[in-house]
Design a protein around this nucleic acid. Structure first.
Lengths: 331, 331
DNA sequence: ATTTGTTGTGGAACTGGTTCCATACGTTAT
DNA sequence: ATAACGTATGGAACCAGTTCCACAACAAAT
């Protein structure tokens, strides 16, 4: 495989001159450039991006840390990051953590080892302190509120989103609510925020029988609904931690002839529209784009993004501006 | 930032020795190793993966070329590839082509430029010849039948899958069928195979009014069904080119009080189960895993993977072994 | 006539690793 | 006694680029 030195030798010019021709930078006479190009063609030369990256100290690659690649929330978010990166001539690589702190440290070490120019954490198991500690090796941004930590972030105020959705439900007379959460309240930030929002709106903790933990797939939605109805036959709402879970719940309710029970999901996936249940739109597309943009800004910027509660079915309110958005999507 | 030479100098040992300590290879005395490690700690040294990659001529990265990152088919396939790569200590990077030949050439050039150790094409716009031409720069595998071309591949015989599904429908008396296809029959391989399969089973071309082209999203499913029913009120089946499209079709049919019309999708996503329509499972997970495995094998291997027609709703046949699979998933 | 600026080119140091080879010493086998 | 081998270490070439700096040649301005 020919390198730049071979091209220099064959063309009879110096390495510097060849480099100038390749990168079209600096002064090169037309005749010289032509000779160099001829030599490149003869030798079938092509630049080695690795050597270039080493020399420049820049990879044009970012790592996207996410717990699961096949989870709709992270999929949507990561897709947005990929697209934004691509539009800026960067490549993005998915780094699946399974919420393992050891894996996350490995990814941070990759940043330290110059494998990436920067890292985006869509979620995490390790504390923010650890991220701050690694910031000296390259920029790191988060897709969640970083509070007082010196880390840039693009995020929706999920607590406010949950409060808003629950308040809407309460205002319309729905008070008997079952909830699913992703992990336990101790390990998952969103689980914690969900139960806190309930407490804020209803002034008391949710009954333990109406809280379904470790909810990940549509089958958990099916199971959760059965559990809720077992303890509370007058159930009015299944408040789910994702659209696929909500879809499972919706299906099970139909099967049990309890389509009177409302279902709400999150992520605003096509399925929520198709099956006609409400969904909290966390604006993952906007979040992903912002997270990438912030990566290469010098200041620490915290970019809150307002979420939307997409009200469908019985919750639908034609005076609601969300409907405009739905109509926009439909056309 | 300290490098290996700095560590060598501070520890009073040679670069070679430091390298041996880092990589735990060759002979190093215990005392020497300790001194080197102490120097590394003092200098806060960490290896530069770029330099290492350059020296080794190996990046431990593969590129995954796919037309759209937010398309369920490619998402599922690409996720499987990512997971397989990760399990083998490789990183995978998504390269979105939008079916643009220029972009695909760019990705092939990245292989040439040593940015990746190999490439996996999940789909493509450029001819196989071009891929073969670039094979000398690194391994390339495909996720579709590569016929007589010297390219490894993991694929399902989609034509056979379509024939099988359509034959099943015909056997059960369903003959009035509308079909959606992703692009036109000229540009899309799967579109071509779909219409060919129809011809094989029914002995004639599908009526143009019952063929809906450029079908990509759930909204296309909605539009397609309306078109089909307009021309053929006795429609019996909407045969869709994806589960989200099928879900759109199913919803529209319900809205039009025509739930008697069967719907079939592809990809076997959760939504197909939840909304109760049949779906062709192209075994994308297995395909992705295989595609990665094949990348680093020396011989050219073509790995056909049998697809499955997941029969649901009125098509459900309890003697069908597919049901075992569904039950397995449910538990 | 001298300074200044533009154009054009090459040398050499720099990015930070890996690895082949030579050398040296101590131990064991012939 | 010496050949053969295992242990331990260092030197230097190698991977393949980028870029600073020096130096010429020539034109235009002072």
């Amino acid at each position: 495989m020919a390198n730049i030195r071979d091209v220099a030798k064959l063309s009879g010019h110096s390495i510097s001159t060849v480099s100038r021709v390749i990168n079209q930078r600096g002064y090169v006479a037309g005749k010289t450039a032509a000779e160099v190009r001829q030599a490149m063609k003869t030798l079938n030369y092509h630049r080695n991006d690795l050597a270039r990256a080493l020399s420049l100290g820049k990879t044009y690659r970012v790592g996207v840390v996410l717990p699961y690649v096949n989870h709709p929330y992270f999929q949507k978010l990561a897709d947005a990051i990929i697209s934004a990166a691509f539009a800026n001539n960067y490549q993005a690589t998915f780094l699946q953590s399974n919420y393992s702190p050891e894996e996350e440290i490995k990814f941070l070490d990759m940043l330290k080892h110059h494998a990436f120019d920067g890292l985006i954490f869509t979620s995490r198991a390790i504390p923010f302190d650890k991220l701050v500690e690694y910031k000296k090796y390259g920029p790191i941004t988060c897709c969640e509120d970083t509070f007082d930590y010196p880390l840039s972030s693009a995020f929706t105020d999920r607590r406010a989103s949950f409060v808003n959705a629950l308040q809407t439900l309460k205002d319309q007379g729905y008070t008997k609510i079952g909830m699913t959460i992703s992990r336990s309240e101790n390990t998952s930030q969103s689980a914690k925020l969900t139960t806190e929002a309930y407490r804020e709106v209803f002034g008391e903790d949710i009954r333990d029988e109406l809280l379904f933990r470790e909810s990940k797939t549509m089958f958990d939605g099916i199971t959760a609904v059965a559990q809720f109805l077992n303890y509370e036959p007058d159930l009015q709402v299944a408040f789910c931690n994702g659209d696929e879970i909500a879809a499972g719940a919706k299906r099970q309710l139909k099967e049990m002839n309890r389509s009177d029970v409302l279902v709400t999901g999150q992520e605003n996936l096509p399925i929520s529209f198709l099956m006609g249940f409400s969904s909290i739109d966390h604006r993952l597309t906007e979040m992903g784009e912002e997270a990438f943009e912030l990566l290469f800004k010098d200041e620490i910027i915290k970019k809150p993004i307002p979420s939307r509660f997409m009200r469908r079915g019985k919750l639908r309110d034609d005076s609601d501006q969300n409907q405009d958005e739905i109509d926009r999507i439909l056309n």
